[in-house]
Write a protein that binds this DNA or RNA. Structure first.
Lengths: 151, 151
DNA sequence: GACATATAGTTAGTTATGCAACTAATATAA
DNA sequence: TTATATTAGTTGCATAACTAACTATATGTC
């Protein structure tokens, strides 16, 4: 189908650009205002560990859409802040399992509230239907670009 | 209105995350494959200069949603690659006007084609209506977050 | 004209990103 | 069981992001 008529170049800024940057900056600002000294990237890792603790670095990378080098360093920094510990897997000593510390656990509630609040600011007057379409489009864009890699 | 019911945290990944990252990486990969040694961030600056040459650094920052420090270094790198030159404004010597070089000019055609091609891959089987909704939602998200700063 | 303020851009410091090359551990194959 | 390949993670190198502090030029006020 792909015979959509787009103004050249313009498209890219549809997907990338202003909105994502603005939301990220706002969320970071809200973290700081609440006295939380974590980046949104670090938060994205913690977020997945709160859902399921003890994931491997590779699995964390997959879930947060990062390569393994980026994941390594993000976890380095989280470990420096004592929010997370690496534990070598008994079964396969190549694998590091990443676990939340007691310092990280109480952050879940606060950061979820800040994320919710931020998204409410961002999505003011935007309907559930519109949000669903955006989510759906994004999923299909992702699939379009990643399935092709497997061929 | 803002009484949307969202699963906590999940929202953020709607706006940010996988799709934007995947598109950016694909575009970068397509640049590299074509032998173009520029980053997509550099390209976003060139893109605005092709539309209007001789913008100030601040104006370029506004149009590409970057702060001035980031803009400074991006232009440092573009200047190093001789794609761009800084010219102090006659009227106001605080201002640097940024101009494309003869090396940069022929890149317009090729990069536009690569960007188009990339977006066609990304937006395969996504309708014009859906894309319009995404654009519109993003514009409103941006407005929601930036207008508030002016109060 | 002199002093305070605002503006454009730069620099320093920290975090994050991606790619490519590397190490160590595990799995496969001869 | 030894040699080879694969996998998980780390490290080096380069670019990019933001904040805060800085320099230099312009503007505004008395």
């Amino acid at each position: 189908m792909s015979n959509n008529q787009f103004k050249r170049g313009e498209l890219y800024s549809v997907i990338n650009g202003m909105a994502t940057t603005a939301v990220a900056r706002r969320l970071q600002k809200n973290f700081r205002k609440a006295g939380l000294d974590i980046t949104i990237e670090q938060w994205s890792v913690l977020y997945h560990l709160w859902k399921e603790d003890g994931l491997s670095q590779l699995e964390l990378g997959n879930r947060t859409f990062r390569d393994k080098a980026s994941t390594t360093r993000l976890i380095d920094n989280l470990e420096k802040q004592e929010l997370v510990v690496r534990v070598a897997s008994k079964d396969d000593r190549r694998i590091n399992l990443v676990y939340l510390t007691d310092i990280a656990k109480p952050l879940q509630q606060i950061t979820y509230e800040l994320a919710n609040q931020t998204m409410n600011e961002a999505l003011l007057n935007i309907s559930k239907e519109e949000i669903d379409i955006v989510k759906n489009v994004f999923q299909r864009v992702y699939d379009n670009l990643t399935n092709k890699d497997l061929l």
